[in-house]
Amino acid sequence: MIARRDDRRPGASTPLLADLLAGKLLDPGYAEAAARRAASAPPRRLRGPGVLLVLLLAGILIAVAGAQARRGEPVAAEQRARLIDEIHARTAETDGLQDRVDRLRARTERSRAAALARSDEGRRVRGRLAGAGAAAAALPAEGAGIVVTLADAPPAARHPAAESGRVYDQDLQVLVNGLWAAGAEAIGVNGRRLTSTTAIRAAGEAILVDYRPLTGPYAVTALGDPDGLRDALEGSPADRRLAALRDRYGIRYEVHRTSGARLPGAGTLRLRYAAPAPQDGQ
């Protein structure tokens, strides 16, 4: 037996649901009773004083709601300004502490390098540490590469759906993954160095990179061979996605070469669930 093909579009109502909505499944007795009540019940009217009373109560409620809203506006604005000031103060404090950590880390690195340089074994250890630090993005990196700039669409060129002209965290994620796939040796966003555990997320309207809020435009720096990076990025899924956003919604998407970019170290990673791989024979 060949099943009959169903040509209805996805989401179309089934016959049972359509009959129910059309009232075809209603019991005839209920339908007759409802019809009798509708025919015998006298029309309900609001007399003049009743109408005036309802209108008066509605006006009082609207006036009270408007007065409360007007009183609440200055309080809400004051609270918002206080929160913004506190955010700026905490951000400045965090930036100051981060600068201090960077200086102490650089001083520690110089002292360690000087101590290791006193012996052959120390110099060999220093070489291994430098290689591991570069792989873990713990040390600064510099050299040639490319800079990819993403920015919200300007108001004059913004799509009627204004939210579509914004850069979101998913866009940065796609771009960063595309640059890693293109062979980037090191990547940073607005000067923030990325590691294998760096998160790019959204919190409200802000984009967080390594849990630090960043503002546009977003300059994504990738170190490596500039020609090789551009060739590998061009035509990739990341490039096609961002080019489509640029063409359709006016988002700024530009790629240019750089010959002397520098990215800071990301600091020491804290591994919570990793352990050294066992050596052969152990």
Score class of each variant (00 low, 15 high):
150 L>A: 09
113 A>V: 07
226 P>F: 10
149 T>D: 00
194 L>G: 13
187 I>W: 03
215 T>G: 14
236 S>K: 09
127 G>A: 15
133 G>Q: 11
189 V>G: 09
216 G>K: 01
231 D>V: 12
132 A>V: 10
137 A>R: 15
223 L>W: 04
124 R>I: 11
177 N>K: 12
208 L>S: 00
141 A>H: 04
184 A>T: 10
180 W>D: 07
167 V>A: 03
174 V>G: 02
199 A>K: 14
162 A>R: 13
145 G>P: 15
224 G>M: 05
166 R>C: 04
223 L>Q: 06
181 A>W: 05
115 A>I: 04
169 D>S: 15
140 P>Q: 10
223 L>R: 05
121 E>L: 11
173 Q>N: 13
176 V>I: 04
245 L>F: 14
174 V>E: 05
186 A>H: 10
126 R>W: 06
214 L>C: 05
111 S>I: 07
228 G>W: 02
144 A>R: 14
198 T>Q: 00
114 A>F: 02
193 R>Q: 13
110 R>C: 02
184 A>D: 08
181 A>D: 14
217 P>W: 00
159 H>V: 07
215 T>V: 12
168 Y>M: 03
222 A>N: 12
232 A>H: 07
206 A>K: 08
223 L>E: 07
237 P>T: 12
118 R>L: 15
170 Q>S: 15
223 L>V: 05
142 E>K: 14
200 I>G: 04
116 L>T: 03
139 L>V: 09
170 Q>I: 01
191 G>K: 08
167 V>D: 00
230 R>P: 04
239 D>L: 04
115 A>Y: 06
232 A>G: 09
109 E>W: 13
216 G>R: 00
202 A>P: 03
161 A>N: 08
246 R>C: 00
142 E>V: 05
159 H>S: 12
233 L>M: 07
120 D>M: 04
177 N>Y: 06
141 A>D: 00
177 N>A: 15
194 L>M: 07
239 D>N: 10
119 S>G: 03
212 R>V: 12
206 A>C: 00
178 G>L: 09
197 T>S: 15
245 L>T: 01
154 P>M: 05
214 L>A: 13
204 G>V: 03
164 S>C: 01
115 A>K: 08
175 L>F: 04
206 A>H: 05
152 D>P: 09
202 A>E: 13
115 A>H: 06
241 R>D: 01
120 D>S: 12
220 V>M: 07
221 T>L: 14
164 S>L: 14
178 G>H: 07
155 P>Y: 03
